[in-house]
Structures are given as C-alpha cells and as structure tokens.
C-alpha cells in the first residue's frame, strides 16, 4: 500500500514566474521524507506538484516527470482527480469541512467512490480514526461538527480523512505549524506509526521536527529572492544533520540564516 516516487527534472511555474527549477529526487516507500529550507524556497510548491494540487492555482503549471512506481503522474491521459485519490494530503491549517460532522468528514472521500454499506463505512471510519489516534477522543460524539474539536484534534481528523481512502502516499504541508507543542507531539507520534504503511512526505519549518521524525531530508534553497528554488542537498537525515556536504545546508541547519 505504499509506493515509491521518482521525480526528474521538474520545474514549477506560477504564470511566468518559475518557483522551482530542475528538481530530481527519489522518495522511498514506508519512510518519512522531510523537506526543509527557508520560506519561499519552493518546498511547499514542490510538495503540491506531487499530487497535482499545484495546478489548482490559476496560471500554475509544471514541467518534468513525476513517476509513482513507474507511472507518470503528468502523462496526458492521467486525470489529476485520480492522482489525488492515490496521494493524500494534509494541509498547514486544519481544514475539516465545517458543515459536516466528524463522521461525515472521515467518510467524505469514501463517498466519492461509490456507495458503501453503512456497516462497511462505519468500519472504515472507526479504523481511520483509530489510525489517526483520535478514536478514543471522539467515539462518543461522531455526529458532532468537526469544527468543535481542538486544533490538534482537527488536524488528526484531517489525517483520518486522508487515510480513509487508503492512499499510496501521504503528503503533509507543515502539519504542525498551527498547533501547540503537545498536539505537535501527538502528530509526530502518529507519523512514526503511519510510516509502517505509507510513504510520507512532510514539509516543515522546524528542523528539530525534521531531525526527530524523518528518515531522509531534502534541503531546498534559492539563490536570491525572485529566483527559482532548488534542491541543494538530499541525504539520510542523520547524515544531513551531522555532516552535510554543502556549506549552505550547514549554515541553515546551524541557524546562521533562514
């Protein structure tokens, strides 16, 4: 249930502005890959090209190849909708559907792909909420609105919603940046658990977080404001944080800029 992503020569644009340039990397299954780098370096943009969410923004486009176990996501006959069905996403700010209950939020993605029996649906919702370490906290109020939960619970609800459709890959765009430290810890624990089943990619501003949770880390940077972002270095997390090969990486990690 987890696939490898291979990116080669990828450029992403907003209109005429090139946001990232010539990114190539391999993201391994059943592991956590972290993207770090200063703001505006294109790491979130790159993450969004991996499930074709980038092109949702008017004028945005992508050149290059993204292979999911060998299948090109940008092949002409591939629909973005199918790609997103296979590659789930968790956003920076928790975004449960405000008009839906907790149960309906988790079931939202499942309902898109045809009708399921009530018992089957119940089963998947419970399994997903358990998977997101949220079941015990919400099992008595599944029919209450999701917006009534705390920020950290809402984010775990969004994770439950994403994994309910059993994606191959889970993309997380700074999932803890809007959360308090305790909720952050809960999400990090959850990631460690989820990586047994999913390919996880996380964008983070927090280097300690990258060091704590990830197996591999990619460092993004841009030459100057207005220039496209690039991957400066990518390696095992332990090596990146102890012995980076590039000067810029070392400067960033040791807090000299960014």
């Amino acid at each position: 249930m987890s696939k490898q992503i291979q990116v080669s020569g990828l450029d992403a644009y907003y209109g005429s502005h090139k946001a990232i340039e010539d990114v190539s990397m391999t993201i391994e299954p059943r592991s956590i890959t972290a993207f770090i780098g200063p703001s505006g370096c294109g790491k979130s943009t790159f993450l969004r090209t991996l499930n074709r969410m980038h092109e949702v923004i008017p004028g945005a486009r992508v050149e290059g190849k993204v292979l999911l176990d060998g299948d090109d996501l940008y092949a002409p006959n591939v629909e973005p909708v199918s790609v997103r069905r296979m590659i789930g996403m968790v956003f920076q700010r928790p975004n449960p559907f405000p008009t839906m209950s907790i149960y309906e939020n988790v079931a939202a993605g499942l309902r898109l792909n045809g009708r399921l029996s009530k018992s089957k649906l119940d089963g998947i919702v419970e399994e997903s909420l358990k998977g997101a370490n949220l079941w015990n906290e919400v099992k008595d109020r599944l029919n209450k609105p999701g917006a009534g939960l705390s920020g950290g619970q809402q984010q775990r609800l969004c994770i439950a919603r994403a994994i309910a459709v059993k994606p191959q890959v889970l993309l997380m765009d700074e999932p803890c940046s809007a959360l308090d430290p305790i909720s952050t810890l809960a999400i990090e624990d959850l990631m460690a658990k989820l990586k047994d089943e999913y390919t996880i990619v996380i964008v983070t501003h927090n280097m300690q977080q990258a060091a704590r949770v990830s197996d591999r880390t990619a460092f993004f940077n841009l030459a100057e404001q207005g220039k496209p972002g690039k991957v400066i270095e990518m390696d095992e997390t332990s090596r990146m944080f102890t012995n980076p090969t590039q000067k810029a990486t070392e400067d960033y990690i040791t807090g000299r800029f960014g």
Partner: peptide, 27 residues
C-alpha cells in the same frame, strides 16, 4: 467559501462538481 476547504476536497480526489458539492454549496 473557504479556499482551504475547497483544497481539502480536491486533495481527496474530488472532481470540480464534487468539490462544489462538498465545500461550496453547503457553505
């Protein structure tokens, strides 16, 4: 209608109409 909910729907693999039904019309 909150953009972040529209994106949430699209990221679940919703078509444009499904996104509108999930995130725009109820709102």
């Amino acid at each position: 209608a909150p953009k972040m909910n529209e994106e949430a729907a699209l990221a679940l693999g919703a078509t444009r109409w499904e996104m509108i039904r999930m995130a725009v019309l109820p709102f």
